[in-house]
Nucleic acid binder design. Structure first.
Length: 99
DNA sequence: AAAGTGACGGTCT
DNA sequence: AAGACCGCCACTT
């Protein structure tokens, strides 16, 4: 378990319900600015049954970056928290939900 | 060893 | 406002 993953998990675990954070911001808060892509790679390795709120991570444009099946799962989770997501993954007024 | 590949992002058109 | 471009970095081929 790398130091990066460790802090990533900690920060994510403390992200409140209904709040969002971007890959880039998450990377920066971990102390690794410019490592947005690595955040994605790391999240992709999470077990399917993880309790971490991986679905609260979106890209800098307030859109879901996942595709296909995973896209639908994330969309459902977010909607379950009261957010509205269009068919392209764009979250309405996402700036209001940023942590 | 070199090239390709992402759950990305900032800049410049 | 949207798309092209390029930088980024850990992995995989």
């Amino acid at each position: 378990m790398t130091e990066f993953e460790q802090s990533l998990y900690n920060i994510l675990a403390s992200l409140p319900k209904g709040k969002l954070i971007s890959y880039g911001q998450l990377a920066k808060q971990c102390g690794y600015p410019n490592h947005a892509r690595h955040v994605g790679k790391t999240l992709a390795k999470l077990p399917k049954d993880t309790r971490l709120p991986w679905f609260r991570v979106v890209n800098s444009q307030g859109k879901i970056s996942l595709v296909g099946d995973a896209f639908l799962r994330q969309k459902a989770y977010l909607e379950a928290e009261g957010l509205s997501v269009n068919e392209f993954g764009k979250i309405s007024h996402y700036r209001d939900y940023l942590a």
